[in-house]
Amino acid sequence: MEHHEEQKHHGTHVISYGRYLLIWLGLLSLTGITVALSGLDLGQWIIITAMTIASIKTLLVANIFMHLKFEDRMFRVFVLVAVVTLLIFIVLTFFDYAFR
């Protein structure tokens, strides 16, 4: 929808207000879902569902609000390297703690 509005300006991508509003509504819905799920007794699953939803929200913010989807591929490679580095820290820490 509204593709005619998302025209190229000076070689850069202009994202329509409508698209931003849709993403915002998606983020609010996901927040509602996490809060609703926290009221249920999901045991171990609560942390997994909460972190999954937070990751989806982060992808929406990074891709659209932070324009990552429309930037040069190099940006996504950089972000991937940074996130994988953090994940390595987390996994290595838990290899230590989980098996003590």
Binding site: T31, T34, V35, S38, G39, I46, A50, M51, I53, A54, K57, T58, V61, A62, F65, M66, H67
Partner: peptide
């Protein structure tokens, strides 16, 4: 403005993780 916006979105993303980890633990 883009750089300022990027900083602000990062602050938002940090909160996206802080919120469930501290408030939704019931």
């Amino acid at each position: 403005l883009e750089a300022g916006g990027l900083y602000w979105h990062l602050v938002d993303i940090i909160w996206i993780f802080l919120f469930p980890l501290f408030y939704l633990l019931h």
